[in-house]
Design a binder for these strands. Structure first.
Length: 672
RNA sequence: GCUGGCGUAGCUCAAUCGGUAGAGCACCUGUUUUGUAAACAGGGGGUCGUGGGUUCGAUUCCCACCGUCAGCUCCA
């Protein structure tokens, strides 16, 4: 849950505190650290020293309740700030909230960044503060009173925040423990003795108020739990998650590589490429069922295309432009002829003179393709799929493994349809998306509808229609969803399907975007049944999203143990000794002919070593070949997923078993 | 892009408080012919991320750049 404060009600709370009520009822116990009140549907946490809103119902929150973590962590951030200001005088504080996994506090420290050693020292001082068992107290004050205190302590960031709070007219409150005071809305634990298990984890820069035009502060992250055991468990879990990191496994499993000469651009090694193409082939198979047509379109276009689509004006900074020698000559000619010499003029001439751009999206090309032929309403909905490679220049600090790259390919498609068909297309797409996520075993899917951003194309009436269509489609399918206001694409709102990676970071994979703008910009039309021209609607959609990103999530989700239908090798043939090489080769040919992906280890290693190596590569089935197998015309199979030795199996049975598992669950025939 | 960390063999990592570097795995060769998570021996492999600077001498100290990691900002 999110922290909701008493201030959100905008009504000064004057009632008794939860503690006094509980004590009067004889129900108070020392492990109660807060209460949860229900404010007409919104649950919020109120600590024991804050007056409750009049006549509100509440339930106690005990130390072992998950919600208690919000108080523990928020209070930990106060204690950390106290410790920091004791150790580093002159340091100013900014914001210090609890977060989903811990807490942080932002500092403006005259001496610059904190080091690892500093963190340990701060932890030490925090422990000392906690040991003195200081109660947290709350004081409601006027803006003037708060201002006086913050001016005295020269807390300029807090002062700035205070002025905003004062302007909005909310009740100002101060929280203290010992001699340390913070402008804070609470809630807090009763005393520092509840802060038994905390650890400072990292230090990083963060802009004041999250705006990159503002100065950068130093943020110290930490985490805290009700007890040491829970903290240890959390740290252990992070260690485990690191083992699944796709960057680590991608390297270990020979899936992917990188080179400084192609920053943020993965090289898919043979095993990785096998999976990569398997992912595309899988989506292709579904496209046949769902009525898509795959096309292949150009990589590089004249800038006219991106000017028309709106990409160049809006996102030039994120595009790769492509200059040719001939083009450079033209630009130079222009510069000298016009006698351009100021920096601004030259920059402009260069930017506008480079003729080609590498496509960052497939949609403008698809708009051109739609317009290449006379279109009838009978062709709609026309679903055009494209696995074209896209390039986007991502700023250096944002790239990350395979999840955020500069070159990638999407399982991209555009649906050209009539307004009336939009609803049906949305619903059918949702069916397709969930078919795919089920096949991969993803269950924790979060659906978000992202609405119009500040910077956008098209008028509001069009946006109203588009947003409405998305909401209706999602509701019709009965999906739980949330709204992300202002997060839509510049040409239209979108439905986003999010999944979490092993480290708990959430990624958008699938998306469906409703676009009334591009058809307008490209003047697209079709002939209706009334024999007149109509404007189609364009739906942008992807299921896996970027194949690169999906691959990364899949690695982390499976810890590298890919299901047989997607695994780079489905079975590994391991000979007991070189004497059985001939039979192994025969089996290998037999399997290859039947479409099985097979790898063989026929070398001089001992069997134990071969098994170890194949297991480390997470091959789903290991087949041992020795004297018994040669004589019986079979294989001794060991299953990765069942984690056991299946014993001797005749070759034909092995083939049958693999043939069934070689297809995605949704593509397996009823007979199989 | 910003703040901070990191960059030594294909991989995982040592070492040198300034005197040009080692291990395990991997690779190659040989011996062993092997039955369910690592046989044994030998060998090759590094301009210590790149470029400058300081120094008699730089992998080590300083600067810049590149890459990468965490976070911030951003993600059509």
């Amino acid at each position: 849950m999110t922290l909701v404060t008493t201030n959100d009600t905008n009504t000064p709370a004057t009632g008794p505190t939860a503690k006094s009520v509980l004590e009067a009822q004889g129900k108070f116990t020392p492990d109660i650290i807060a209460v949860r009140v229900d404010l007409g549907g919104t649950k919020k946490l109120v600590d024991l020293i804050t007056p409750l809103p009049e006549g509100v119902a509440f339930e106690p929150v005990r130390l072992d309740h998950p919600d208690a973590l919000w108080l523990i962590r928020h209070s930990s951030s106060h204690v950390m700030a106290d410790a920091v200001q004791r150790l580093f005088p002159g340091t100013k504080v900014a914001f210090g909230p609890a977060t989903e996994n811990g807490f942080y506090y932002d500092y403006d420290r005259p001496g610059g960044a904190f080091t690892e050693d500093d963190l340990r020292r701060i932890e030490q001082t925090m422990s000392e503060i906690v040991a003195t068992d200081l109660p947290f107290t709350r004081e409601e004050v006027t803006p003037a009173q708060a201002r006086e205190i913050l001016e005295r302590t020269d807390e300029t960031y807090k002062l700035e925040h205070l002025e905003r709070l004062a302007a909005s007219g909310v009740q100002i409150s101060l929280y203290r423990h010992g001699g340390w005071t913070d402008l804070c809305e609470g809630p807090h634990v009763p005393s520092t003795r509840f802060l038994k298990a905390f650890q400072l984890t990292t230090v990083a820069g963060a802009y004041w108020r999250g705006d990159e035009r503002n100065p950068m502060l130093q943020r110290i992250y930490g985490t805290a739990f009700a007890n040491d055991k829970a903290l240890k468990a959390h740290l252990k879990q992070i260690e485990e998650a690191k083992k699944r990191d796709h960057r680590k496994l991608g390297k270990e499993l020979d899936l992917v590589g990188f080179h400084p000469w192609a920053p943020a651009s993965p090289f898919f090694l043979p095993r990785g490429a096998q999976i990569y193409t398997a992912l595309m082939d899988y989506v292709r198979a579904l496209y046949v069922r769902f009525g898509y047509h795959e096309v292949v379109t150009p990589q590089i276009f004249d800038r006219e295309l991106f000017t028309t689509s709106g990409h160049l004006p809006a996102y030039a900074d994120n595009m790769f432009l492509a200059a040719t020698s001939e083009n450079i000559d033209e630009v130079v000619e222009h510069l000298s002829k016009e006698q351009l010499s100021s920096k601004g003029e030259i920059e402009r001439a260069l930017r506008e003179g480079i003729r080609f751009g590498v496509k960052p999206m497939n949609c403008p090309g698809h708009a051109l393709m739609f317009a290449m032929q006379r279109r009838s309403y009978r062709e709609l909905p026309l679903r055009i799929a494209d696995f074209g490679r896209l390039h986007r220049f991502e700023r250096s600090g944002v790239t990350q493994g395979m999840t955020r790259v500069r070159t990638f390919c999407q399982d991209d498609a555009h649906v050209f349809c009539t307004l009336d068909q939009v609803r049906q297309e949305i619903e059918s797409f949702i069916d397709l998306v969930y078919t795919v996520y089920r096949d991969f075993g993803f269950s924790d899917v979060r659906v978000v509808i992202a609405t119009r951003p500040e910077e956008r194309l098209g008028d509001d009436a069009i946006w109203d229609r588009a947003e409405q269509a998305l909401f209706e489609g999602v509701r019709a399918k009965g999906l739980d969803h949330s709204t992300a206001p202002g997060e839509g694409a510049f040409y239209g709102p979108k439905i986003e399907f999010h999944l979490k990676d092993a480290l708990g970071r959430s990624w958008q994979l699938g998306t469906m975007q409703c676009d009334f703008n591009l058809p307008e910009r490209f003047d697209l039309h079709y002939v209706g049944d009334d024999n007149s021209q109509h404007r189609p609607v364009m739906l942008h959609r992807a299921i896996l999203g970027s194949i690169e990103r999906f691959f990364a999530i899949l690695i982390e989700h499976t810890a590298g143990a890919f299901p047989t239908w997607i695994a780079p090798e489905q079975i590994a043939l391991l000979t007991v000794s070189e004497k059985f090489e001939d039979y192994a080769r025969e089996v290998q040919s037999h399997l290859i002919e039947r479409g099985v992906r097979v790898t063989s280890d026929l070398g001089k290693d001992k069997l134990g070593a071969k098994i170890r190596n194949a297991r480390l590569m997470r091959v789903p089935y290991l087949a041992v070949i020795g004297e018994k197998e040669v004589e019986g015309r079979g294989l001794a199979i060991r299953s990765r997923d069942e984690d056991k030795d299946l014993g001797f199996i005749p070759l034909d049975e092995v083939v049958a078993r693999l043939a069934n598992e070689a297809r995605a669950p949704s593509l397996r025939g009823p007979a199989a």
